[in-house]
Simulated scan of single mutants.
Amino acid sequence: MVPLIALLFGLAVGSFLNVVIHRVPRQESVVRPASRCPGCGRPIRSRHNMPVVGWLLLRGRCADCGAPISVRYPLVELGTGLLFAALAWRLERLDQLPALPAYLWFAAAGLALALIDLELRILPNAIVLPSYPVVAVLLTASAAWQQEWWPLARAGLGAVALFGFFLLLVLVAPAGMGWGDVKLAGLIGAVLGYLSWSALVIGGFGAFVLGAVVGVAVLATGRGGRRTAIPFGPFMIAAALLAIFFAEPVAAAWTRLPA
């Protein structure tokens, strides 16, 4: 039941994320004006604002001018819904449902940041920095509800550790990483540290593995060279989300390996 509710909630959040992804990098309000066609500027009708269904009804085109509407919009909505449902299922299995709001916030912010970084090579402070107090409050509420304070302390230690590690990297090799990645690292350290040390380690360093794999693929397919700039934020977010689901079985498999 909880994953289904999370799915429906995620579809609605995904619709809002489309607004965030488009407007935040342009320093525009995400509240006003209402959603409108980027071609003719006419407001989107309420019946066409339904997540995924509205785009299908319109067949991917504006109802007024017929301009094409990117398939990214329904994909973001559907992707957010499915991710929310998966997180609800996973945290329910981990007996961590009180922490679900924190992870839904992180997932929504992460999706927006990943898509903005892929398109514009930036991780806006307007999304990253407010996420720190929001996640801190939500994780604190979760710890208080469960009367378990060690996960919260571990989250704080994880945030400091991953932030410090990325800060060291950017100071040693400033050309290889941006300050936005450093600020994002602290947030990732908190959400992964709250779950376990293994989630923190696997999620924190998994980004480098994913980045290396994609970098090799880009070189092998001839779609770029050694100097091709690839944003690192999406790898950080993808690795963090994967760690939420797979850190526990990966860590267990690692401990069973022969010495």
Rank of each mutant, 00 (worst) to 15 (best):
S70P: 10
A141C: 14
A85C: 10
C65S: 09
A259I: 04
G180Q: 03
V31S: 07
W179M: 15
A159Q: 07
A102Q: 03
D181K: 09
G204T: 07
R23K: 11
S70H: 11
N49F: 08
A6H: 02
L100W: 09
V218P: 03
A185K: 05
P124Y: 05
L168N: 02
E119K: 15
N18A: 12
I230A: 05
A220T: 06
I202R: 03
A185D: 05
L187S: 01
L118D: 01
L97T: 12
G54Y: 06
W89G: 02
E77A: 10
L56M: 14
G110K: 04
F205H: 07
F166Y: 15
E77D: 09
L168V: 15
K183A: 06
A239W: 04
Q146L: 14
R90E: 13
A136D: 01
S131D: 02
M1A: 12
W149R: 05
A161M: 12
Q96D: 01
G60Q: 08
P174T: 12
R59C: 10
L129I: 15
P231Y: 04
L17T: 07
A212H: 04
F9I: 15
W105I: 11
L94C: 02
S35M: 09
R223A: 10
V209P: 03
G211M: 09
A109V: 14
D64Y: 14
L187I: 09
D95V: 11
R121Q: 13
L7Y: 13
R93F: 04
A86R: 05
G39I: 11
V209W: 11
L120N: 05
L56E: 03
F16Q: 06
V137H: 02
G222R: 10
T255Y: 06
G215C: 10
D64T: 15
L115W: 04
P151Y: 08
A88V: 11
L123C: 06
L111A: 02
T140E: 00
G158D: 06
